[in-house]
């Protein structure tokens, strides 16, 4: 727990002193405005919920990929990974604590998109608050777990930024955040179910709607399960990657 808290406090302190790392938070209102303008422009008010929810989920994901995903790579480049690894205990709780701090801050994206929606004259009502809350928490959990996996994977290539940039938009398409899944080719749709964002987006949309939420527990379980798979993969990869770096002698660039 101490190592988790140490990581959490470290990341909180770093984020307070580096607004550059929070650039994603500046893009969320812009995306919300764009999506609202697009849906309003074609007179499809039924899509307003999606127009507010999509930028929030995108912001959450971008924070995971660009801020949390960079943690280990940044430490490696700045020589702080070596002393961290040389300390007793596992690196996993430290990374988890740091990603936890980023994820907690990421909740701001909901407030941002909601505020822009309200400014646009949109009144969103959460008709199923418990489902919505559970969905938000489960999504945060899955995001943090996936971020841990990404943070570990990004250590392997030298030019990790290319992958950071290219992985997000295909995932948004696959998850049905930007366009409905029904617009995708039939053969591609089963892949959507492997993305926690697909389940999260559907659940949160339903929680905002007036109709009863179908399969709420199933969808929540899917989000948590995919998050847990991500966490397991992250833990496995972290061990493997650290061993590999210690064997190759590339734990730090010097």
């Amino acid at each position: 727990m101490n190592r988790y808290l140490a990581g959490f406090r470290l990341q909180t302190a770093l984020l307070r002193r580096a607004f550059g790392d929070l650039h994603t938070l500046l893009t969320v209102p812009v995306y919300t405005l764009i999506f609202l303008a697009m849906t309003d422009g074609v007179h499809r008010p039924g899509l307003s919920t999606d127009a507010v929810l999509a930028p929030a989920l995108m912001g959450l994901w971008f924070m995971a990929v660009f801020t949390a995903g960079d943690l280990i790579v940044w430490d490696r480049h700045h020589g702080t990974l070596e002393p961290t690894v040389a300390a007793p205990g596992s690196l996993a709780p430290v990374i988890t604590g740091r990603i936890g701090a980023v994820t907690l801050l990421s909740f701001v994206v909901y407030v941002e998109s909601w505020a822009v929606g309200a400014g646009y004259g949109l009144r969103l009502t959460v008709h199923h608050p418990l489902v919505f809350l559970a969905g938000v928490v489960a999504t945060a959990f899955a995001t943090a777990c996936t971020a841990a996996m990404i943070a570990t994977l990004l250590v392997l290539p030298r030019n990790a930024q290319i992958y950071q940039n290219s992985v997000s938009w295909p995932l948004f398409l696959l998850s049905g955040i930007i366009v409905p899944i029904s617009a995708l080719p039939d053969w591609l749709r089963p892949l959507s179910r492997l993305s926690f964002l697909y389940w999260s987006a559907g659940l949160l949309r339903s929680a905002l709607g007036t109709h009863p939420v179908d399969d709420a527990l199933l969808r929540l379980t899917a989000v948590v399960l995919l998050g847990t798979v991500g966490a397991g993969a992250a833990a496995f990869l972290l061990r493997k990657v650290l061993t590999r770096l210690r064997v190759l002698g590339t734990l730090g660039y010097s």
């Binding site: 470290l10 302190a13 770093l14 002193r17 580096a18 700045h78 020589g79 702080t80 070596e82 002393p83 730090g252 010097s254």
Partner: peptide, 11 residues
């Protein structure tokens, strides 16, 4: 290990 690296400069 020393040098300019290995510390969190923003803190």
């Amino acid at each position: 290990f020393g040098g300019d690296r290995g510390l969190y400069g923003r803190l």
